[in-house]
Structure formats: C-alpha cells, structure tokens
Amino acid sequence: MTATTDTPSLAELQQRAAERAAARAGGTDRLRGHIVCDGLVRIFKTDGVEVVALQGLDLVVDRGELLAIVGASGSGKSTLLNILSGLDVPTAGIARVAGVDLLTMSAKRRLRYRRHMVGFVWQQTARNLLPYLSAKENVELPMRLARRRAGTRPLELLEMVGVAHCADRRPAQMSGGEQQRCAVAVAVANDPEVLFADEPTGELDEATAGEVFGALRTINAELGVTIVVVTHDAQVAAQVRRTVAIRDGRTASEVRRSARVADDGSHELVTEEYALLDRAGRMQLPAAFVDALALRERVKLNLEPDHVEVRRGDGEG
C-alpha cells in the first residue's frame, strides 16, 4: 500500500496519535500499559451450569493505541469489552484501565468510571443516540450530566467525525453511517481515557463502514484517545497497527503492521503475524496451520538453535 499526498498514511496517523497521547499523559514515560489484563477470568453461572467465557486472558494496550480485537462468536471478545468498559465485573485476575482496578471497584466508583473515563459505541445504531434529541444535543448531553460547559466542543467533535451538517438533525433524519459517526462524537464528548466500540460497522455496508472507521481513526489521531474495537470486519481489522485474535477465552495470536519506506520513497505496509505465549509458555497454533498439517491431540517438538520445530505426533509427517 502506497501513501498519497491527500490521505495520511497509517504511519502518519499513528505518529500523530502517539504525539497526542503523550501530551495527554504528560510525557512518553507514561505511555505503556494503559490497559492491562493479566490472567483475566470470567465465569457465568446459570441454573447450576458454569460457562467460562475468559480463561486467563493476557493483554496490554499502550496509551494512544488503536487496537482491533477479532474472534469467532463465543470466543470471549465481547465479554472482555464489557469488563474493560465497566459494564461487567471479572471473576478473577487483573484488569486495569488507566491505573483503575476494575476488580475491586465499588458500584459508585464503577458508575463514575463509566461516566468519565470511558466512552462506548454499540453496534446497534439505535442504542447510541436518544431519538428525540438532535446530533448536537446528543453530544451535549453527557457533558451536561457531568456539569461541564459544552461551549463549541459539540460542533467541533461533529465536524471532526464528518457530520457537522447533521448538527440539527434527529437520528431518524440521519443515515446509519451518520448515526454511528455521531455516536463516536458522543462517546468522546467527556474526553475519556479510552473509547470502546463493539462491532461499530456491523450493520453498515462496506463504503459506510469505511467512513465510520475513518471517524475512529481521526479521533485517535487528533485526540490521542486509546481505542479498542471489537470487529468481524476483516477490512476494518486490516487498518490498525495491531490486531489481536481471541480464541476460547484467551489471546491466541497477534498481527502487527508497520510502515516501511521503499526504495522509491513510497511507504509500504509490512504485516507480520505472531502467536502469543502466556506466562506458562502455552501457545495456540493458528487454526489454518493445524488444519493444513492435520495436527491432532499431540505434536512433537524439536528445539533448534534459533527456532522450535513442530511436527505431527505418532510417527506421522
């Protein structure tokens, strides 16, 4: 992928977001570990049946990062998002956002945390906006509830996400994409530390989804807000520096993308995939690898000077 003069490259957007994040944090030494999960467990109990949604999940998100989380239905990604946004309480382990311990918070502190420290965008457009308020009034509402003076900020945020023309329109007078971009403006109205988005493009067509994700990238770059997006959209996941895959309640793999200057001076996007090791040294092999080599039950491991070799067990392969 080559950068153009009109559209900022991924590297340029990341650099801008890092600079804004450093300014918010008061220095680059406070950038790491904005979100920390260590051995995170969530167990649901219904009619005597226990369902383990998260099984010791580990995750670190840097301040100012724009991260995508992917995984099949039931993998635990929405459970993780609900815990980090203060909508659910973990069963065990460590979950911290901006230094706040989500495991030990009281109900009063949890409410304050949701109101001031995090923003949230739902997949269903109807859940994000009040239908009887205009776009501008929807953005103003969380500021009024927090007793903050709105001033020109609502209009500035609407302009930032590209829907300033909808300021006086109610949700029913906006398209689905315009509603979601307005919802992004609402989510950052109180200048939160982190913005969480649960399948924000799930109900939109490809072109409109691109506009909504563009709004998230703009907010990340201009405000330095840390953003975590749960998505099934491969196109969205491919536009962030880091994509983390969750499988069976654990982080399984990670894709990192970085910009590299080619010989002709243009910017190339380099993509590398990694498997993740937990503290016990356990690793999940990508499903495609398992299927390609027909790996079952057990495998043979050989330690080489610079790598570990994995072969089929039982004398096969």
Rank of each mutant, 00 (worst) to 15 (best):
L10P: 03
L301M: 11
F289N: 02
S78W: 06
A288K: 13
V49C: 00
V121D: 06
G151H: 12
A259V: 01
S106M: 01
A3V: 09
I35G: 01
Q14G: 13
S258Y: 03
E199N: 09
A150Y: 04
R296Q: 12
L158M: 10
L285T: 07
A53G: 09
G177L: 11
E156F: 01
G39Q: 11
R311F: 07
L276W: 01
E156K: 09
L204N: 06
G313H: 09
A187Y: 07
Q124G: 02
P305C: 04
R24N: 13
V261H: 03
E222S: 09
N128E: 09
C37Q: 05
R298C: 05
A238R: 14
L10S: 11
V163M: 07
I35K: 03
G71T: 04
F44Q: 10
R109E: 15
M283Y: 00
L223T: 01
R257Q: 13
R16W: 07
V230R: 02
K77L: 04
V139D: 04
N128D: 10
T271Q: 14
L276E: 01
R260W: 03
A3N: 13
S134L: 02
R112G: 08
G224Q: 03
A95F: 08
D38E: 15
A294S: 15
V194D: 02
P154K: 03
V212Q: 04
A21C: 07
S134T: 15
A275Q: 00
G33A: 04
L40Y: 05
L277T: 11
A234K: 05
P171F: 05
M117I: 04
V244L: 14
H232L: 08
E12W: 06
L130F: 13
H34W: 02
R170K: 14
G210V: 08
E268R: 15
R115W: 05
A262T: 12
L81W: 03
E316N: 10
M1K: 14
N190T: 15
V255L: 13
T243K: 06
A209V: 05
R127A: 13
A22H: 03
G177R: 10
Y132A: 12
T4A: 11
D306F: 02
L103T: 13
N82H: 15
L303Y: 02
L195T: 06
H34Y: 00
R170M: 09
G317D: 15
E50S: 04
V236F: 10
L303K: 04
R144E: 11
R242D: 09
G33K: 05
E50Y: 00
L13R: 15
G249E: 08
A183Q: 08
L67P: 00
R110P: 01
I69L: 14
T243C: 14
G202R: 09
A237K: 05
D191Q: 12
T4D: 12
G210C: 09
T251A: 15
